[in-house]
Nucleic acid binder design. Structure first.
Lengths: 357, 357
DNA sequence: CGCTTACCGGTAAGCGCTTACCGGACCCTA
DNA sequence: TAGGGTCCGGTAAGCGCTTACCGGTAAGCG
């Protein structure tokens, strides 16, 4: 406690070293637990560090050992928040991010986040800048085109969520096929609904394509008729779902006995519009979602859906990325199991029932 | 397009320089728009950069010019999610973070986030590590004790949200006094309620102390009686609010004519419990919140509350921090105006009415 | 036509840290 | 007491970038 404070210029390892009366190498060794410093040396260094409340500069560390301990996470910020309850959509993203964070913290990494608006122009530039500040990137759904991802992936390790792998990037997703299969079978076989419709998500989403294809396959396998066509195109938002129902009805088309939705948001909109038009769910038409967002259980009636293990998805995404960063390799196409959640919008009465898929 | 790709070792400015046939200094100058490179030089460099899709290393840059272009943001992750709708609480945080991000992007900064669980032990250590990776820190409410903040603040610029300034740190908050004043006057004067209660937030929250004190002052000024005491201690959660009502009623105490709550979450719990106990809002007892979270308008009845400009708060917080980082100084105690939102839980009928405070 | 002035762009010195390498001190053995 | 082996810990070389400084070339001027 010689002087109260030196020149205010941020402290460096040299300040600590001179205060402890050792060399900077020793300070570094103590701080990183390398080598075998004598107990007394360690003690002296620790005391100096404590007294000065020194924290080593991350940039210098990163430069020196080639590891920033930072993952970049990029996602879309909602731009079409209209419907009541719609805010939930980014809760969804948030849960995944939390999962990433949990995984990251296990390895001393932090999350560098960057959200992108729907009409931001310089997305690629922004992501590029992020790439420079991180050891690897995790991209949420639909952030970049396949070639954009590929380009990015050969400057920095990249993991995409709910997309599809490219030669250089890794993808982590949920088992959409199983989820849709469970839904279709439950509706077509358990309930015996012979006519199904599928309100799709954004057409550029790999998840949506997978679900859509699985829907057709499984419906055929279960011997159910399906309603299709451009009128069934949604966009993952509640408004999109409501719109599909509205235009179907306005065109005088007959609704199928059950409607599967690309995600819970869409189901929310579909059910809302159905209620507006005086149709009862599930009596007149059954509705199902996908995702199991928190509101799903509080809808009227509670939504039958498929739960994706979001938080785990985030954690796994980090883990895969971490492997790639530190060792290279890693499974380029990781698929996580989903869980079929039966509630009441399908026509069932009991709550609570669950089935693993 | 000589060779398809060199050794996979991440590219450096040297690779770009040699490909463009110039020195690294020129590359750097072109990339940063410094000096006056000849048009042809610029062109050569840009082409090389594009062909290699080079992105300069953030750590090296940071080390070299003493600016990481990263702000650390620390917040608490909910650990007591129990009540329906409670998830909203971190939506609140998210909106602020969005605001920070918006401010940050204007200056090319990114957000390094770190959430802390309610029973994480090594909080200070984690925040310290963050500090090393960022140019400055923004701490959400109740992250660290005053001395913890002070210690942190002399290693890196710190802005706290809804706290109070310390000699070295800056604080940004909303004008709680005006908000409470508007609420109290509306209830006591406009509605003529002569007896008020205040369900407080966590006792260690500066915002709560301010609101609590303002409540007492304003109630006295408006000539209303107040109910106080330890039974009125809440904790910002819906469960806390419900608990206050429950224990008051269980103890056979008479409820005041109107109950102000420390935040909307609390009001949610209070109204829920009131409904459980068969009390009607606002007929039997009026209830008000604070924050104006999204659900507030969808409660039954819609909640009269005070809106805090969350996103703006985040943006301002960044701006103040940025000033401190780049120039030093900056107003250490920034106060943002709030907006009084009249809905129905206070006893008013009309929706929509608003008053600036 | 020779010298000054401007303008570019290259060379090299750090930024704060990690770590390979090496030399000094000490202990053990003969 | 001398030689060899062990430990510790210091010295210095980078990590990839920015930028001060300076030398070379070309243009401007008398």
């Amino acid at each position: 406690m010689a002087e109260p404070k030196k020149a205010k210029g941020p402290l460096t390892i040299y300040d600590v070293a001179s205060r402890a009366g050792v060399s900077i190498a020793s300070v570094s060794r103590v701080l990183n637990g390398q080598g075998t410093p004598r107990a007394e040396t360690r003690e002296r260094v620790m005391r100096a560090v404590r007294e000065l409340s020194f924290v080593p500069d991350g940039a210098a560390r990163a430069l020196s050992n080639g590891l920033k301990e930072v993952v970049g996470v990029v996602f879309r910020r909602g731009g079409e928040t209209l419907f009541e309850g719609e805010d939930e959509s980014f809760l969804f993203i948030d849960v995944i991010n939390r999962g990433i964070e949990v995984g990251a913290q296990r390895h001393g990494f932090d999350l560098l986040i960057s959200s992108v608006g729907f009409n931001d122009d310089n997305v690629a530039a922004r992501i590029g800048a992020l790439a420079g500040k991180a050891d690897g990137l995790i991209l949420h759904d639909r952030m970049l085109s396949a070639v954009g991802i590929a380009r990015l992936a050969d400057m920095v390790p990249v993991v995409t969520l709910a997309g599809s792998p490219t030669p250089a990037s890794i993808n982590v997703r949920c088992d959409n096929e199983s989820g849709i299969r469970a839904l279709v079978r439950h509706l077509a076989i358990d309930h015996g609904y012979k006519n199904l419709g599928y309100v799709s998500g954004r057409s550029d989403s790999p998840d949506n394509r997978t679900r859509s294809r699985a829907f057709e396959t499984e419906a055929a396998a279960a011997g159910a008729d399906i309603d299709t066509g451009p009128a069934w195109q949604g966009n993952y938002s509640a408004a999109g779902g409501a719109n599909v129902v509205a235009s179907l009805l306005d065109a005088g088309r007959k609704l199928p006995r059950a409607i599967l939705c690309a995600n819970d948001q869409t189901a929310l909109g579909v059910m809302h519009e159905l209620a507006q038009r005086g149709r009862q769910v599930p009596r007149d038409v059954a509705v199902t979602g996908f995702d199991d967002v928190p509101v799903a259980r509080h809808m009227h009636p509670p939504l039958t859906t498929v739960r994706q293990p979001m938080q785990e998805l985030g954690a796994i995404a980090f883990e895969v990325l971490y492997t790639r960063i530190s060792a290279g390799g890693g499974n380029p196409d990781t698929v996580l199991p989903v869980e079929f959640i039966v509630r009441e919008s399908c026509g069932c009465r009991s709550a609570g029932a669950k089935e693993k898929t």
